[in-house]
Amino acid sequence: MYVAVKGGERAIANAHALLAKEGRGDAELPELSTEQVAGQFGVLVSRVMTEGSLYDPELAARALSQAQGDALEAVTLLRSYRTTLPRFGYSEALDTTGLPPQRRISATFKDLPGGQQLGATFDYTHRLFAEAPTEGPELADHTDGDRVSMPRVSDLLGANALIEPDAHPDQDATEPGDLTREPTVFPMTRAERLQALARGDEGFLLGLAYSSQRGFGSTHPFAGEIRVGEVEVEFDAPELGFPVPLGRIEITECQMVNQFTGSADSPAMFTRGYGLAFGRSERKAMSMSIVDRALRADEFDERIESPVQDEEFVISHSDNVQATGFVEHLKLPHYVDFQAELVLVRRLNREFHERQDHAEPVPSDLVPTVEEVLA
C-alpha cells in the first residue's frame, strides 16, 4: 500500500476518482461502449488478447476501456482475470493446415497455387508497388466441398526437399509445459519459447526482429506465408474419449523462410521461423517468427553473437507485464535506499576532496610548457 503520500488511503481513493473522471472525458459526449472498442479497434484488441493469453474480444475491449487505451495496463488486467479462471485441461493442437483465410499472402511466389488473398489491409495505403499481388478467389463464395485449395508455401518447398522438415509433435507425448504455471528454466524447448514469444511485447519483439534483419542476428528472411482466418478449437474430454469442438477463433499465422547454406552434416536448404497470435496480429506474428528462427541458432551450429540469438536475454525481457512492473515500481517510495546511497556518495565525495587537499603540489620545473606539449 502506497501510504507514504500525504493523506494515505484517502489520497489514493481520490487519485482513483480523479483517474475515472479524466478517463471519461467530456461528459456531454457519448461514452465509448465495449462493443465499439471490440468492433472498431480490432488490431489493438488482438494484441491485448495475445499478450494477455486469453481469447475474449469483449473482455479485452473492456480492459482497454478501463485502462484508457493503455495496452500494457489492459494486458495486466486480462492476465489478472485469467488467473482466477478454472483450468480444465488443454485444447487439441490447432490444425492450421487447411485454415480458410480471410487474408493470405506470400512474398516468395508470385503465382501462388490458390492465389493471393489480400483481404483487409493497410499494406498498400502508404506504399506504391510496381506490381501488387493479384487478389485470389473469394472463399466466401465456395462451400466446404468446393473450396479452392491453398497449399502451404512450406509444403511446396518441402515436396522438393528444399526446406527443413516440419516437426509435428506426437499427440501421445507428455503434457506440454505451461509457462503460466511453471517456472522458466533455461535452456527451453522450442515449444516453451514459442509460448513466451506469443505472450511477449509486440514492440520489443519488433525491435529484436529489426535488429536481426539489419545484421545483428544473421537472419534476413522471406515471408513464406501469412494467413489470417478462423480456425476451430477442439477439446479432448477424457470421459468422452474423442475431441469435441469448442468454437472458432480468429488467428494470424506466419511462416518465415530463411536461407541455410548447409554444413558438413546438412545440405543447403531453407529453414523455418514460426509465429502465431490471436486475431489480426500480423506485425506480432511476423516479429515472433523472425525471433523464433534467430533463437534456433544452436540447432544449425551458428555463432551466437547478437542479443536476438540469446535465449535468456530475449525470454527474460520480452514479457511486458514483468517489464512494466519492474520499471514502474521506481515510482514507489525508495526513501531508505536513496538515503543509504546519499550517505555513501557524500562520504566518497568528501574523501575525494580530502585527498585533493592533501596532495603534494607538482614542482613547477616538472610542469611542461605549452610549447613542449605542442612539440
Score class of each variant (00 low, 15 high):
E202W: 02
G262H: 00
M256R: 10
D166M: 03
A209C: 00
R190C: 09
V257S: 05
D265M: 01
G247L: 10
R214Y: 08
E282P: 09
M269N: 08
A173D: 13
F204S: 10
I249S: 12
R272V: 11
Y274W: 13
P243S: 15
F216E: 12
R199Y: 11
A277Y: 09
D236Q: 11
R190S: 03
A167S: 09
A285M: 03
V244P: 04
G207C: 06
S212T: 02
R193V: 13
E202H: 03
P176Y: 03
V257C: 13
A277C: 14
G273D: 09
M256F: 14
P183C: 08
G224P: 01
S287Q: 13
L197T: 00
R199L: 06
V185Q: 14
F216N: 07
L295W: 00
I251S: 05
R272W: 13
P183K: 03
A268Y: 10
A297K: 05
M288R: 01
A191Y: 02
R190T: 10
R181S: 14
G224M: 01
A237W: 15
S263Q: 05
P238Q: 10
E302C: 06
I226T: 10
A264P: 00
F235M: 08
L205S: 12
G262R: 00
R181I: 04
P267Y: 08
R293H: 09
G275F: 14
F235E: 05
A277K: 11
L179I: 11
V231R: 05
V231C: 06
M288V: 00
L194H: 07
L205C: 08
S287M: 12
V228F: 11
V233T: 12
E232F: 05
Q195C: 05
A191H: 06
R296W: 02
E234V: 05
G217S: 09
I251R: 09
D298A: 08
E192D: 09
R193F: 02
V291C: 12
G207I: 05
E202C: 06
F242T: 13
T219K: 11
R227Y: 07
A264L: 14
E282D: 08
P243T: 06
R283E: 14
T271G: 03
A196F: 05
S212V: 02
R280C: 07
R272N: 13
